[in-house]
Every structure is written in C-alpha cells, then in structure tokens.
Design a binder for these strands. Structure first.
Lengths: 362, 362
DNA sequence: TTGTATGCGTTATCAT
DNA sequence: ATGATAACGCATACAA
C-alpha cells in the first residue's frame, strides 16, 4: 500500500476496467452492468477509495456545489438574529435541489488580511449578498467579475442583479399610520444601525444612512412623523432596545415608540416596564419582522410580519435559476400589518412629559 | 473577445511572460520584478482576469480553504441557539490564520438525497463535528476515510480524534449540590433533547439518551438527586422551558428546578411567574451555559458558565494543527459555577405540594 | 456497455 | 528573476 491516496485510476486498474468506467460507476450517470459495478466497488473498498476527489471533480465539472452567503457582521452576531435564522432555512431549502452547501463569509471590508477566504478566492458557484450597504456594490463587482451568479437581499445591486426586496418603507408607514390613527402625536423611533460603524445615538444625518433597511423603514416613519426623534442602535437585540428605550423615556416622554425590529421593540417594552409604564396604556410600541420573540409573552407585538424564510428562498431560487441558465426573478415581498396588544389609543394620562410637549406629528 | 473566460495562460501570453511567472504574480510566493508584475497586472486587467480559479488552484495545492461544520439540526435551528453563535465566533477566530471559510453542513442522516452536499462530497480540508450523538461515529469514519482532519465538540469520537469536552457532569453536580445545600429536597430537572427525535416528556429510559450533553448533565444532577423527575424538551429555548415549567409546576410542586440550559431556565422562570410564584423565594431555578439571556433582567441566573467560544476556538485550533502536520490537542473545558439571584434557601411556605411531598434527595 | 483521448486551470519543481 | 515541464484527479465526447 503506497502512502499516496488511491485515485479512480488505481481503482480502475485494480478492477480491471478503464478509468472512465470506474468514474461512471460513482457518478451513476450512465448505465453500467452489475458485474462491472460490483468489481469496481470491490476494488474501491480494497483500496480504501471513498469516492471522487471533490476538488478534481469540481475543476472538471465547473461546479463546486457551494453557494456563499456574505454577512456584514461577525458570524456570531449573524447567528444571533432570528431573522437570519429564518432566512437560512429558506435559503437551504431553495438550494437543496442542486445540493449546494452554504459557505459563510464575512464581509471583512478593505482591511481584510489577504489570507481571508473571500468572494475572490473561495471555490463557490454563486453568492448571496445580504445586508444592503455601501460594500455590496463592490462585492457584486467581485463576484460578477468571476462570472458567478449573485443575488442580493435587501440591497441595491445595480441593474440585472436579481434582488429580493421588502416593502420596508410602505410597511413602516402603515404602522406609523396605525399609531397616528390612535391619536399619538408624540412619537419616537428606534432604528437599526445606520452604517457599518454601528454607533448608538440620535440620528443627525439621515441622508447618510448606508443600511438600506434602516433608511427605508425610517422613511416610512417619516412619511407620517417627519419630526419624531430617531435613535440608532448598534444591533437588533432586546438589550439594545432596552438601552434605547431608557434614553427615549427619560426626557420628553413620547406616547408611542416605533421600533425597527421586534427585538428592539421587546427591549423598549422592558424599558417601559422598568419606568413603571404600562404597555399599551401608557406607551404604545410597534415592532418590525413578526418574529416570535422568545419569552415576550403575554405581549403580542403590533408589528409588520415579514416572511424572512421567503427572502432566503427567493434568493436561493434566483441563484439556482441562473446556475441552470434560466432567467432569475427579482422579488419584492410585502409585509403584513399585524395588530397585537402593544398599541392602544393615546390616553389623557399618557405621555406625561418631563418637559414641554413637542408636537411632531406631520 | 472570446466567450470563454480568460485563464492565467491567456494573461501570461498577453503580458509576454510565462504562465508560471504570471501565477507567481498572483500568489506572491516568489519575488517578481516590479516591471513584470505591472505587465501581468495590466494584462489581467485588460482581459478581465480576476485571479486564479479556486477550483484549479485547490486541485493543484490540495487545499480548498474550507472547513465544514456539521450540525445535527436544521440550519435555522442552529442559528437560533446562542451557544452556537459563540462557538462560531471562536471557530472562525481559530480558522482565521489559515484563512479557511466555514461550510455549514447538516447531518441529514441516512435518508439524505444523494444530491445533498455532504461530508463525502464537499470540497473541504477538514471538518468539525458537533452534537454528540450516535451519528457522530459514522461521520467521523466518512471524513477520516477521505483522509481529512476531524475534531469533535462534545461527543465521543473514538481514539485519536481530538475532542473538545465540557465537564458537564461535574458542573451540573455542583449546581445540584448548591441547591441541596440550600435545603431543597423536592427538585425537578428540565433536560435538553434526549435524541434526534426530540420528543417532549418525562424521561423513562435514561440509559438510552444518545445526546452526550443531555446524558452527562443529567448524571450530574442524578449524583445528588437520584430520584428527581426529569422532563425532556425538544430544544433549548425559552418557550420550551416555559412549557416544561408549566408541566412541572402543575402537579407536586418542586421547590427547585435544575434546567440544562439558560434558555430553558428562563422559560421555567416565566412559568413560575405565570403560576404566581416568586423566584427565588418560592422556587429556585438554575441554568447552564452562562449566556446572556436577552431580556431576562432583572434576574441573574444561578448557572454554570461555559466558554462556548473557547470550544469553537479549540476545535478550530485542533484542525489547523492537523492541517499543518502538528499534533492536535484535545481539551476538556471546565464550567464555572456562578451564583445569581435565582436560587435561595428553601422556605417553609415554598413547595406547597398539591399532593404528598416526595422526598427525592439522595 | 465499455474504453480512449483529451483538457479543466493551476502551481511546484527544477533549470536557466 | 523567469521559464519549461509536469502533474493534480477527474468527467465527458466520442468511438468501438
């Protein structure tokens, strides 16, 4: 037994057949006589050959069987967001027919070490870009330069790149309308991060927001409440929402808070409880995403329900279509407004401002 | 311009150099004169060549730059568990030096479609197995058959496979001791899933538990409370803990509940609140993992703190070591007991049993 | 049903 | 510092 691993040629020789015949036994693409197959299998067994080397196969076929997903954040952070979890489910479903695995890639930005696996150097068949910021365009260029299919989820990818969008602005506008219809005029907004830096604080330069989701949802809120204070968080989590809620409930107290995600909304509710406020009697809160916030019961958030799994599925289907030479479909998904028990008509006792009331309804 | 993509040979020809020289310009492994480099870069640019084809490179070098992580569950479920998130952070840190990407693979079991990307057919350099059940051994065989390095996290992998373990039993025993020292005798246990089927309900066949973590932690509890009722959940989540808590608090009410994860413990606390019980006055609760349960404040769980990131890092370091021909290290990590505010001495008013008290302390 | 021939695109080795 | 050569292991078109 040589130290070198057996190849299909070795197996073929051992079995007394040609390499192509042996190859065909493993790929199953051509009919082979049972006798021949048995010989080949036996030879493989005796040589410890466990199947074709994927590297060589992929060079030959031009397919690696891998689709990359590019996250903006640390992998751990991506894992912590339930919306991503649903998206991954949809994506892996859509990829199942072509049997592609999912390669997690992190958008390292320009300061990446050269050794980092990247869109440039990973053996992939296609890529799904996620996250909608300034870097997406560059990433799209990279992948396209390699001649690989790309789909973009919630980002602006440029012409003829299939994109999966959400009606973020319109949906958020609906929630804001709902809140206004309940009589709320003093409203505050808790937003997702505005850019890669993820700094907390009140928004000053809203035109400079580079995260599409953040910008679009904020615009939807602005359509109804052009002057409401908006506070940016560092990520979509309950604790970030809690921190933002504390800030917003400390000063001129709003009667309603529009949060850009359910996780943030859940945090805002905790902040309200902490401040001795009842939700929704003293403070109305809306979320976004329609996920199940583990442990938030008995509250049922008033929120916009999005189908995150559908986003992943659509992106997966788009790259599969392109891989098979078909025309990919772009898609704009709609959110569904769902009224829960966290919004109620403004009450006279609510919104006890610590300072003068600001009338910010548009 | 031909329809075929440019190769390094085309670039070399265009630049008037040899293919090997052009190759070296991209790999940077050998010194090249500035003039030559510039020529090659320019030629590449003009031909739209974006760098070596990773498939061909990996065939030639024998490296794909990809490490697989095998999960037992749906990808979405894996994403929802905070312990996995931390583990991924550690793993990607450890893999950074060799610049390997992370391929998500799901343990499909025997009923997988042939097309599924798997340990057998994915172009990977190594694998990290996670999840400690009956299937791990088969997976190890598969990967080893390919001659690839493997590391196993919290599972029994057989000889000379590096494994990253936690002192689950000892740690859980500590927590149980703590609870006993507080005077608790009527104790119940909420466990992680017992096997792949993930059925909820009281344990009957504890010897038949195939998930190592579940079995080991349960044994630790059994060292102190051999007869405490143990209820299995379907996954580690607050809602599962809530459901289990409801069951356990409905009948003969224990004065303390040992949960096998913090998420489960958080759910148990919610169940207690729901039942009008105060934690820790009426019910003591312990968790496991030491994660930050988003939104659980003001409770600080009494729990066993594990360093999940260290688990991922150790697994990553083990495969990197093997890839570099060094000896990999197995590692057993210890949990640290952390007393929070969810455990207290048993009080005379607590544990108002609906039936007769069962003395189950050992 | 099986075999023959060829090339997928690269990089390591060695010589120059 | 650069170039020539030879694999890397496989899968397909085509011939037999």
């Amino acid at each position: 037994m040589s130290s070198r691993r057996a190849t299909i040629a070795d197996v073929a020789r051992e079995a007394g057949v040609s390499a192509s015949t042996a190859s065909v036994v493993f790929s199953g693409k051509v009919v082979v006589s049972d006798a021949t197959r048995a010989k080949v299998i036996a030879a493989a067994e005796s040589l410890g050959y466990t199947g074709p080397d994927p590297r060589a196969a992929s060079l030959r076929t031009g397919r690696a069987g891998i689709v990359a997903v590019l996250f903006r954040e640390r992998l751990g952070a991506a894992f912590r967001d339930p919306v991503n979890a649903a998206m991954m489910d949809g994506l892996s479903d859509a990829l199942a027919p072509i049997g592609a695995g999912i390669l997690l890639l992190r958008d390292e930005g320009p300061d990446a070490p050269a050794t980092a696996p990247s869109l440039t150097s990973a053996p992939i068949d296609a890529a799904v870009l996620l996250g909608c910021n300034e870097i997406v365009r560059a990433s799209v260029e990279t992948v396209r330069g390699r001649g690989l299919p790309v789909a973009v989820i919630e980002g602006d990818a440029g012409a003829d790149i299939p994109r999966i969008l959400l009606d973020n602005r319109e949906a958020q506008r609906q929630a804001a309308e709902h809140v206004r219809s309940l009589g709320h005029r003093d409203v505050a907004i808790v937003t997702l991060p505005r850019d890669g830096a993820r700094r907390r604080g009140f928004h000053d330069d809203e035109a400079g927001i580079t995260v599409d989701v953040t910008r679009d949802r904020l615009q939807g809120a602005r359509d109804v409440y052009p002057d409401a204070p908006a506070y940016a968080t560092a990520e979509s989590s309950i604790d970030e929402g809690l921190a933002a809620g504390r800030v917003l409930l400390a000063g001129v107290r709003p009667t309603a808070i529009l949060a850009q995600s359910d996780m943030l909304a859940a945090g805002v509710i905790r902040a309200a409880e902490e401040a001795g406020l009842r939700v929704p009697e003293d403070l109305s809160v809306t979320g976004f995403d329609g996920i199940v916030v583990d442990g938030l019961a008995p509250y049922a958030l008033t929120t916009l329900v999005q189908d995150a799994a559908a986003k992943g599925r659509a992106a997966g289907e788009a790259v599969v279509a392109m891989l098979e030479g078909r025309e990919p479909a772009s898609l704009t998904l709609s959110c569904t407004f769902r009224r829960g028990n966290t919004t109620a008509p403004v009450s006279v006792s609510a919104g006890k401002a610590l300072g003068p009331r600001s009338d910010s309804a548009g």
